[in-house]
């Protein structure tokens, strides 16, 4: 055990044992996949058509937005050049499927079907279509384990989208709640504010949505305000997740230069 904590070569032992584990994970995910298959094959023709139409419309709208994005991104990069920052907004993305949830009720881990052989690495951020989900903590050859943002061992540096106030969002152990710690009573945070990742700590890329403030309480007896947020990612429902390969994990300079708030 000490060896695992302090020696690097043990990682190869772990990944070799990982091959032995593959059939176990495959078998244990059978009922879930069976359910999905049954659902898909039992779907009626009309609902499929309906789905198809809806998706076509959605793709049209998104295509229009992408056209807009191209111009905006070019403009943004020009402005960034003016500000002498070399940060890119583009991230490479890989789609993975959720194949398991950790049975331990005291942690929030999920297992996804992409591993070291797909280039996944420890610390890699995971998103779903709505926002940040968590980060990779353990990589096996064909699967990897993801720590969700709602796990009580997880913390992520965030900022309020509206005014850039920074804070740290810590998982509460419940899937629908995050706590913001060390928020001064005077900080300008209101219910309904959007939280985005701030990119500090250079683990998560900057600017991905994390959640929305649902509760702010000022207790005169406490040194800090009591702030709760709701994760925007569907932590308990998403089946497909996105793995982000952010090439530039550089600190946003404009933020890094500022004095930390007292």
């Amino acid at each position: 055990m000490l060896a695992d904590q302090y020696l690097a070569p043990i990682a190869s032992v772990r990944s070799t044992l990982g091959y032995l584990i593959v059939p176990v994970q495959w078998v244990s995910s059978i009922p879930g996949r069976l359910g999905l298959w049954a659902e898909e094959s039992a779907m009626s023709h009309s609902s499929l058509l309906e789905d198809n139409n809806r998706l076509r419309l959605e793709s049209l709208v998104l295509k229009q937005k992408v056209q807009q994005m191209i111009a905006l991104r070019a403009e943004n990069n020009r402005f960034r050049e003016l500000l002498n920052t070399s940060e890119q907004l583009d991230d490479k993305i890989l789609v993975a499927e959720l194949i398991g949830v950790d049975p331990d009720p005291y942690t929030h881990h999920i297992i996804i079907n992409k591993g070291a052989s797909h280039g996944v690495f420890v610390g890699q951020p995971i998103l779903d279509a709505q926002g940040l989900m968590g980060q990779v903590i353990d990589v096996l050859p064909y699967t990897s384990r993801v720590l969700l943002v709602a796990d009580s061992n997880h913390a992520i540096p965030v900022q309020v989208n509206r005014n850039g106030v920074r804070a740290i969002a810590v998982g509460s152990g419940r899937l629908d709640e995050l706590n913001l710690i060390y928020v001064p009573d005077t900080a300008d945070i209101k219910v309904g504010d959007e939280l985005v990742s701030s990119g500090l700590g250079s683990r998560y890329p900057k600017g991905y949505p994390l959640g929305e403030i649902i509760k702010v309480e000022h207790d005169p007896g406490q040194p800090f305000a009591y702030v709760k947020a709701k994760p925007s990612a569907y932590l308990d429902r998403s089946r497909y997740v996105l793995l982000v390969f952010s090439m530039e994990s550089e600190l946003p300079k404009a933020v890094a230069i500022q004095e930390p708030e007292s």
Partner: peptide
């Protein structure tokens, strides 16, 4: 125990011991 460790993502050797 080693297999269980890898399966659960625990520190290697925990269940083994």
């Amino acid at each position: 125990g080693l297999l269980l460790d890898v399966l659960h993502g625990d520190t290697l050797g925990l269940n083994a011991l």
